[in-house]
Nucleic acid binder design. Sequence first.
DNA 1: GTCTATAGAACGATAGAC
DNA 2: GTCTATCGTTCTATAGAC
Lengths: 206, 206
Amino acid sequence: MAYRRTDRVQARLDAQRTALIRAASDLLAEDGYAGCTIGAVAARAGVATGSVYTHFHNKSALAAEVFRTIVVREVDAVRAAVATGSAADRVSAVVDTFAGRALKSPRRAYALLAEPVDPAVDALRLEYRRAYRDVIADAIGAGVVAGELPPQNAAVVAAALVGAIGEALVGPLAPTAADRPTDSETVPTLIRFALRAIGSTDRAHA
Amino acid sequence: MAYRRTDRVQARLDAQRTALIRAASDLLAEDGYAGCTIGAVAARAGVATGSVYTHFHNKSALAAEVFRTIVVREVDAVRAAVATGSAADRVSAVVDTFAGRALKSPRRAYALLAEPVDPAVDALRLEYRRAYRDVIADAIGAGVVAGELPPQNAAVVAAALVGAIGEALVGPLAPTAADRPTDSETVPTLIRFALRAIGSTDRAHA
DNA sequence: GTCTATAGAACGATAGAC
DNA sequence: GTCTATCGTTCTATAGAC
C-alpha cells in the first residue's frame, strides 16, 4: 500500500474544495462569471492554480458547482418563504424573497440568472427554474383547491411566473449601467403583476 | 492585377453563405443546435466542411448568425401582429403569434429559446428578449394612455411578460418527452395570464 | 501565371461506450 | 479506466477565376 488517503488528508482536501467554491462565489459577487477565471479563484482560495483541477475537471465543472451550491440555497430560501399563508401571501413572498435576495447581490444574481457563460450553466438554469416552478405550482394549486384562486393550470402559470420574475429582474440587475433603469418600483410592480396574473382578489396586497 | 473578385464570384459566395444558414436552420428544426455540427451543415448545404470557415470564423459565429436570421423574422412577425387593436387585442396577439409560431416548429423554437448552446447565443437571447420587451411595452403604454389599462410600469411589465411567455413554452417545447406535458391548454392559459397580469378588464378575451 | 476558393484529409481534443 | 467515435479546426493539394 503505497499511499492511503488518511482522514487528515481528506479533511484538508474537503476544506480546499469548500474554499474554492467560496472564493468563486465571492468573485461572482464582484465581477460575475467574467471574474471567475481559474487563476483568480485559486489565488483567492490560497491554492495553486493547478490544484483547482484536483477538484474540478475543468472551468465548466467549477462554474456549474458554484452555481449549484448557491442556487440550492436560494431555492430553499424561497421554499421557506412560501410555506404558509394565503395563496396571495405565498406568491408575494416568492417574489419578494427572490427579488430581495437578488437585489442584495446584483452582480451575482445577474451572473446566475442571465450572464452568458457556458452550456453546463445553461442546463442548470433550466433545472433550477423547474424547481422554482414546482414550489410556486404548489402554492397556486393549494390556492385553487382552497377556492382563493380561480381554476387554472398551476404548472403552466407557475412556469410563467418564474420566467416573469427572472426576466423582469434582468434589467435592474444588469451590470452595464445603460441597461439598468434604477427602478425602485420593480418589486412592487412585480408583486402586483403576479397577483393579478394568478387571479387573486386578495386586496391585502394591492 | 492577378485576381479580382468579380460580381459573379461574389454572387456565388453569397449564395453559398445563404445556403449554409438555410441548411443550419433546417437542421435546427430537426435536432436543434445538437444537430448543427459543422460537418452536417456543410453536407446539407452541399459544400465542403472546410468551406464553412470561409464564411464564419467558427461554429459559434455560425450558431449566432443562424439565431439572428431566424429571430429577426420572429420579432417582425410579432411586431406585425401587435400593430392594431385594443391593448387586450394586442397583448393576446403577441402571445398567440409567438406561441403559435413556436409550436409549429417545436424543436427549433426550443433551440432558440432554451437549449444550452454557447455564450454567443446566450448574448443574442438577451438582446432579442429586449426587442420583444420593447414591442410589448409599446402596446401596454398605449393601453395605459388610452385608459384601457391601469397605470403601470410598462417596461417592467413587458419584460415580465416576455419571460412568462418564454418560460411557459419551454416545457411544452422540450425535446425530451418526459418534460413535455402535451398541454393543449397552454396558449389559452398564457393569454388569460397575460391579460390578467396587465390588469385588462376586456371581457372579449375571457 | 498568379491568386483564390474548394474539397477532403489530417490533427488534436473530447465525450461516450464498453 | 481504456478505447473508440466524433467533432471543431487547420492544412494541403487541386481546380478554377482572372
